[in-house]
Design a binder for these strands. Structure first.
Length: 368
DNA sequence: AAGTCGGGGGG
DNA sequence: CCCCCAGACTT
């Protein structure tokens, strides 16, 4: 059985141990695989160019890493190209209004990232002379840069020999060591095992392991026959690699219900307002809604008008399901002073999260 | 240590 | 429907 990375006893059992001597990860094999199969990505310097002395731009690496937090490569590409076109340097981004950053981030999700992105750019310019710190420890002091992102930037840009552990690596290593507990309970052990393998080409190694997780050791399929870690992989030896990682018990997703009110003035403009600076969809643009509650309530219309019902929008957030009844009416503009009126043509440029684009769509306002 | 925080693509 | 994605931050 080799060395199962096992957490017998972390909490449940009195004695311990995990893996003081994890069997090694063959980083030369991983790098050789990467030299032939690296993905071509807009923010990446290829291993060939890297060998020729090309250095990654920390600004672009940082921007991509923040966008990629809990977000797929496919979803990020267009946003990355748009951001780097609008703001080619960290100084450009720092000088941009936060509103513009939120507008461009709209649709990508996890909007605290956009606020932290802007704050981080301003910190780099204001506190670091416009130059990103060149160590993981230094990077992690910046807003929106945590354990993973700091390690990724330090490895990719500066070849700091630090373990870069993301969701892909959680899966790859859980399989490699046939980890018999949820990854969250063994994060430190996995990081320690990975740290021992980090080679001089730390940046390429980090990207190689992530590519491996994205293309070979994928969530629902593991192409073990072409994997450079085939020989040492315990899950492969057991014969059912997709059994790992062990998943924690899933919490049920509660339902919240409410009403959304699309108000238009005589000229057809739509009434919009800003959400609070904290909490869900913080600082983004919305149409007015009722409170979102477990029980469906009667619509508390903001003004008296001939309200028309359009149907229901369903939107899935991470920890609850939202069902909004969508209403619209032509209203007199009196009393609506907290927000602003937007022409239908201008909606595409508003900082509207996907939820409210769905609402506007259902009310008959076509979005680009 | 557990909760909060989006959205989309693929099985 | 379900899962998962180059996680960070708060409590």
């Amino acid at each position: 059985m080799g060395c199962h990375l096992s957490l017998m006893g972390r909490r449940r059992y009195p004695s311990a141990m995990s893996l003081s001597h994890p069997h090694p990860i063959d980083s030369p094999a991983v790098l050789a695989w990467y030299d032939r199969h690296a993905r071509d990505l807009p923010w990446r310097v290829s291993p060939q160019d890297r060998r020729d002395g090309v250095r990654p731009d920390p600004y672009r690496v940082w921007l991509s890493e923040v966008m990629l937090q809990q977000t797929t490569v496919a979803a990020v590409k267009a946003y990355f190209l748009r951001f780097t076109s609008l703001w080619p340097t960290v100084a450009n981004l720092a000088a941009a209004p936060l509103d513009a950053v939120l507008r461009e981030w709209a649709g990508l999700g996890y909007y605290a990232r956009a606020r932290n992105l802007h704050a981080c750019a301003q910190a780099v310019v204001g506190d670091h002379g416009g130059v990103f710190p060149d160590t993981a420890a230094g990077l992690q002091t910046l807003p929106g840069i945590g354990a993973y992102t700091s390690a990724a930037i330090a490895a990719i840009c500066f070849d700091e020999r630090v373990a870069v552990l993301d969701g892909n690596l959680d899966r790859v290593l859980a399989r490699y060591y046939a980890l018999d507990v949820p990854v969250r309970e063994a994060k430190d052990e996995l990081r320690g095992a990975l740290q021992l393998a980090v080679p001089v080409r730390a940046g390429d190694f980090a990207q190689a392991m992530m590519d491996l997780g994205a293309t070979i050791c994928a969530p629902r399929a593991a192409m073990c026959l072409v994997c450079p870690l085939h020989d040492g992989c315990e899950a492969r030896a057991e014969g059912e690699p997709t059994r790992y990682p062990i998943k924690p018990v899933k919490a049920e997703r509660p339902v919240r219900r409410g009403h959304a009110f699309v108000m238009r003035d005589a000229s057809g403009d739509v009434y919009l307002q800003s959400r609070p600076a904290k909490g869900l969809l913080a600082g983004m643009t919305e149409v007015p809604t009722s409170d979102w509650t477990a029980e469906p309530g009667e619509p508390d219309f903001p003004v008296t008008a001939a309200w028309q019902r359009h149907g229901e929008v369903v939107h899935i957030f991470t920890h609850f399901r939202l069902e909004l009844e969508v209403w619209s009416a032509v209203v007199p503009p009196d009393g609506l002073v907290n927000g602003w009126w937007s022409s239908p043509d201008a909606l595409a440029g508003e900082a509207l999260p996907t939820l409210f684009r769905k609402v506007l769509n259902l009310a008959g306002l076509d979005q680009a």
